[in-house]
Design a protein around this nucleic acid. Structure first.
Lengths: 343, 343
DNA sequence: ATTAGCACTCATTTAAAGTGAGTGCTAATA
DNA sequence: TATTAGCACTCACTTTAAATGAGTGCTAAT
C-alpha cells in the first residue's frame, strides 16, 4: 500500500485538526470541515489504511483517529508549511533590551522568556558548558586577608568567580605576579585540559614565590572543577497546564518533575543534535520521561562553533509550524547578537 | 465563653490529627484516638464552642471540623511543641559540602535544596539584595579592545560581573588607575548610595585620563543599576503535588504560577518580618494568592545584620513543629558558616 | 455537667440507563 | 473498479437515582 496524494492530504488535515483541537478526528467532521471531495465512508477507508501504515492510531475502537509519532514525523519532514511570520515576531522581541545585556547569561535568560512567551510552550536554554570552553583570562583579586577572588573569563563570554580561601596573607604585588604567570599558562586551554597535571606543574614552577602557593593552587584546582554547572534557563513551565494532554495531576507532575532534572534535560537536548534545527518527537526521545513530549531545538554559536541550545518542549501535539518559525527567527537573532559581540 | 483547659486539649488534638491526615476530624474518631476521658457527645459540644470562638470551621454541615487560620495561629503560638530533632537533621546536612562553597550564592542554592528535602515542602531562599549592601571592592579588568569586565564585590560576599562596552581602546595601566580611583570613591557605599550623582562626580574628576571616561562611567552607572535581581532560589516546587489540598489542577497551577512571580514572593517573605523566625498563616499573608498557604521564614545574617531570608512555603495544614525545628537548626548553621567566613 | 439515643445532613460511592460521535462491513451505485 | 449510502455495533462519557456512612445537633435520661 502506498501513500498516495489523497492519503497524504487526509493525513495532513487530520494532523492540523488535531494540533488545533486535541480531539480525535472523525471522518464526518473531516469531510465537513475540509473540502476533500469525498464522502466520510471513503475517508474512513483511507483512515483505516493510514492506521495500517502506522501514521495514525485510535485511542479506542469507536473513536476518531489521532496522529502517531510516525505521523508527526512525516508531517514535520514533508507536509508542514513553515509560516512566514517572522515580521510579526520581530515586533515582540525588544532588540534594544537584548543588546543591552552585559553577560551572555542574562541574554540567554531573557531569550528563554521570550521563547516561552512567543510559543506558549515551555522553553529551556542551555548555556555554554564552561568546561568545554577555552579560557580567555584568569585573574586573582585579593579580597581580604584570607580570601582571593578568582575571575575566570572564557572565550564564549561566560564568567565565573569562585573565591579561594588561603591561610596566610599574601601581598597584592605577589598575587598579581602569580596571577599573570598562571594566566600565561592557562590561556587558550579549556577547563577540561587544565586538570590537575597542569596545575601541579604551575605549583612547582611558582614554588619560590611564597608558601601560599601550596594552598592556593590546589584550592584553585578544586574550585575550577566545581565551577561547572548545567547552566540551564527554564521559562514558561506552567504553560503545560494549558494543554488537555496534561490535564491530569500525574502527567502534570511527571512533566514538572522532569523539568527539575537538569541532567536529564541536558542529555535530551544535546543527544545527537548538531543540526541548526532539530525536532525530536515523542518516542524518538532518549528518555522515557519525555515520550509524550516533543522538543524543537536550535543551536547557537559563538565564533562559528556551537556552544549552546535553545529549546521548546511541549506535547507531541505541538504547533510545529509556528514553533519552528519562531525558533529559526529567534536563534538567528541571538546568533547575530553574539557574533557582533565576539568579533 | 473561655478557652479552658479541656477545650485547648481538644483543639490541639484536632489540629495535630488534621495536620497528619488532611481529613476533617469528627468527635468519635477523636475520642477513640486520643484519651480525652469524655464521650463523643461532650466533644461535640466543645467543638461547637471552639467553632463559635473561631478556632475551627466546618467544610459542610455534617462533616467533622478543620482548624481555621486563627486555630493554627493559637497552635503555633501556644500549643505546639518544637521537636528536639536537631541531631537527626544534622546527619542529613553535609556540613563539609556546605563549607566548600566559594560563593554565598552557591551556599544558598544548596541550602534551599536541603530545606525542601528536609521538610518536604517548597523552599524559597532570598539572596542578599545587592543594592542594600556596601561595596567592598570594585575592579575593572580589560577583556578585549572594546570590553571591560567590572567585578563588584559586596561586603556580604555577593559578586557581580557586568561587562562594560567601550568604544576606544584603553591601556591596562590607565584602566588600573581609573579602577583604583573609583574604588576609593565607592568603597563602603551601597549601590543605592552611589547613584548617578557620585558617578558624575567621578567622571568629572577623572576627565583628564582619557576620552574613554565619557563612555565608561555612564556605562558603569547603567550596569550597576541593572545589576540588581531578586536573587531567589526555589527548590522542591513539585512537592506541592504530595498534598491533597492541591490535588486539583487549578490550585496546583495557581500555586506554581505564584512561585514564578519573584516580586510577589519577595514581598510575601520580607513584609513585616524582622524576627529571627516568623510564621505567616493563610489569610495573614499580604497577597491573596497565598491565602491558602503558610510561610515559615528565618533570617540569616552577615556581621550582625539581616541580609536575607530562608523560607518554607506549603499548605496552611503544615507540620509547623517539624518545619520550625528544621529551620531553627539550619538557619543557625548557615549563620555560623557565614560568620566564620566574614569575621 | 455529662452522655446515650436518635433523626437528620450531605459528600461520596455505586449502579444503571441513555447519549452520541465514531467505526467497520455490506450492498448498491457511478 | 472506486465510491458511497445504510446500518448495526462500540465505547467513552453523561445523567440520574439509590445506597452508604461519617458526622452532626438536639433532647431526655443519668
Amino acid at each position: 500500500m502506498k501513500l498516495n496524494e489523497r492519503k497524504t492530504l487526509i493525513l495532513q488535515a487530520i494532523i492540523q485538526d488535531y494540533i488545533q483541537s486535541a480531539e480525535p478526528v472523525g471522518s464526518r467532521t473531516l469531510s465537513k470541515k475540509y473540502e476533500l471531495g469525498v464522502s466520510p465512508a471513503t475517508i474512513r477507508n483511507e483512515m483505516s489504511d493510514l492506521e495500517e501504515l502506522g501514521y495514525l492510531k485510535q485511542p479506542h475502537t469507536s473513536s476518531g483517529r489521532i496522529p502517531s509519532d510516525k505521523g508527526y514525523r512525516l508531517y514535520v519532514d514533508k507536509l508542514m508549511e513553515t509560516q512566514k511570520n517572522a515580521v510579526l515576531h520581530n515586533q515582540q522581541i525588544n532588540t534594544d533590551i537584548m543588546r543591552k545585556f552585559g553577560e551572555v547569561e542574562q541574554l540567554l535568560e531573557y531569550s528563554s522568556k521570550i521563547i516561552s512567551q512567543l510559543t506558549n510552550y515551555t522553553s529551556i536554554v542551555l548555556a555554554p558548558q564552561i568546561q568545554e570552553n577555552k579560557i580567555k583570562h584568569i585573574q586573582l583579586i585579593p579580597i581580604d586577608s584570607n580570601s582571593i577572588l578568582a575571575v575566570i573569563v572564557t572565550e564564549t563570554g561566560v564568567i565565573r568567580n569562585p573565591i579561594l580561601r588561603i591561610r596566610e596573607r599574601i601581598s597584592p604585588d605577589t598575587l598579581e605576579q602569580i596571577s599573570n604567570f598562571i594566566n600565561t599558562k592557562v590561556q587558550g586551554k579549556t577547563i577540561k585540559e587544565i586538570e590537575k597535571v597542569l596545575l601541579t606543574e604551575i605549583q612547582y614552577e611558582l614554588r619560590q614565590y611564597s608558601d601560599v602557593i601550596e594552598t592556593l593552587v590546589p584550592e584553585l584546582a578544586n574550585v575550577i572543577e566545581a565551577v561547572n554547572d548545567y547552566g540551564l534557563y527554564l521559562s514558561g513551565t506552567t504553560n503545560i497546564f494549558n494543554f488537555p494532554e496534561f490535564n491530569d495531576l500525574f502527567k502534570a507532575k511527571a512533566f514538572l518533575t522532569m523539568l527539575e532534572e537538569r541532567q536529564l534535560l541536558s542529555s535530551l537536548i544535546t543527544t545527537a543534535n548538531d543540526n541548526k534545527l532539530n525536532i525530536s518527537i515523542g518516542s524518538e526521545n532518549m528518555h522515557k520521561e519525555a515520550s509524550e513530549c516533543s522538543l524543537v531545538t536550535a543551536t547557537y554559536e559563538i565564533e562559528g562553533s556551537v556552544v549552546g541550545w535553545l529549546t521548546v518542549i511541549g506535547p507531541t501535539r505541538m504547533d510545529y509550524s509556528n514553533v519552528v518559525s519562531s525558533m529559526i527567527h529567534l536563534s538567528g537573532h541571538i546568533n547575530s547578537l553574539l557574533t557582533k559581540r565576539y568579533k
